[in-house]
């Protein structure tokens, strides 16, 4: 077959692919007459609760570390809500966001599929060889909390049973909920979103890392007022009540702004 024929057979395909790829970009580029819409970058574990607190912004949920890196690369976020305090502090040091404020805390739990194929009753059962354990990447806050908790329990050896390091906490949840993995570490609030699919096992109290969520306003935001109003809304009594209803822990005392 000649090059010409190859080309002839492929070009309609290429054209179609290009059109498909460009269509969403064109849609995004369209100017809107609506009032400015905030863009909120938030930790994946906030996926369900933040839209309950304020449904208006455009949300981008993901691993906090990925979102922070995107902001560092110039992504147009107005607000950054992270599952830790280190990432927003890093952005603040770099002059990319305001001084972060803690707005919630969360607990780390071990989850197993409802059917519990590997019959895991406690975190110590993770030592069984062949257990398929899924954790988040150590760069993701929940991944760092997982390593910390395992170290405290002197269980770092179970890392040998890790079959995948996921890019955010909801990916861990999904792999366990699907029954593909035997166990995974997520936040208590994530486990609560799929009660019919996963069972949460508490960690010993001394091993529970303190997951503190912090929020800040991006310095590059052109909607500083709206962005600050959003943060105030999250910190308000109503916002806090929604967070607590979703299973988050109250933000610690002494963290008031």
């Amino acid at each position: 077959m000649s090059a010409h024929r190859v080309a002839r057979r492929l070009w309609p395909l290429a054209l179609a692919a290009t059109a498909l790829a460009l269509a969403p970009a064109a849609a995004l580029g369209a100017p809107s007459a609506a009032p400015p819409r905030l863009t909120v970058f938030a930790a994946a574990s906030l996926t369900d609760v933040l839209p309950q607190i304020d449904p208006r912004p455009r949300y981008s949920f993901g691993g906090s570390n990925t979102l922070a890196a995107q902001i560092e690369q110039g992504a147009p976020a107005d607000v950054f809500a992270s599952a830790d305090t280190a990432l927003p502090r890093r952005l603040a040091r770099e002059g990319l966001c305001s001084t972060p404020v803690v707005f919630a805390r969360n607990a780390l739990v071990l989850i197993v599929p409802r059917s519990n194929p590997a019959r895991i009753e406690s975190v110590y059962d993770l030592r069984k060889p062949g257990t398929k354990l899924v954790v988040a990447d150590p760069g993701v806050p929940v991944g760092a909390y997982t390593l910390q908790a395992l170290r405290t329990m002197k269980l770092s050896g179970v890392l040998a049973n890790v079959v995948s390091r996921e890019t955010d906490v909801r990916e861990v949840l999904a792999k366990v909920a699907l029954g593909e993995a035997d166990a995974g570490f997520v936040y208590a609030t994530d486990a609560k979103t799929l009660p019919g699919k996963v069972t949460a096992l508490k960690l010993p109290a001394r091993a529970r890392p303190e997951a503190r969520y912090a929020i800040c306003v991006a310095s590059s935001s052109r909607h500083q007022g709206d962005a600050r109003a959003f943060v105030a809304r999250v910190l308000s009594r109503a916002g806090q009540a929604k967070l607590i209803a979703a299973g988050f822990l109250p933000r610690a005392q002494g963290q008031r702004k």
Partner: peptide, 26 residues
């Protein structure tokens, strides 16, 4: 990433490694 997950040295291919390193080591 959906079917095989991502684990360095086992299932992490170059594109997956790019994604995992992008925020750690650009």
């Amino acid at each position: 990433i959906m079917f095989a997950g991502s684990l360095q040295g086992v299932t992490q291919t170059l594109p997956l490694a790019i994604y995992s390193e992008f925020d750690r080591n650009f």
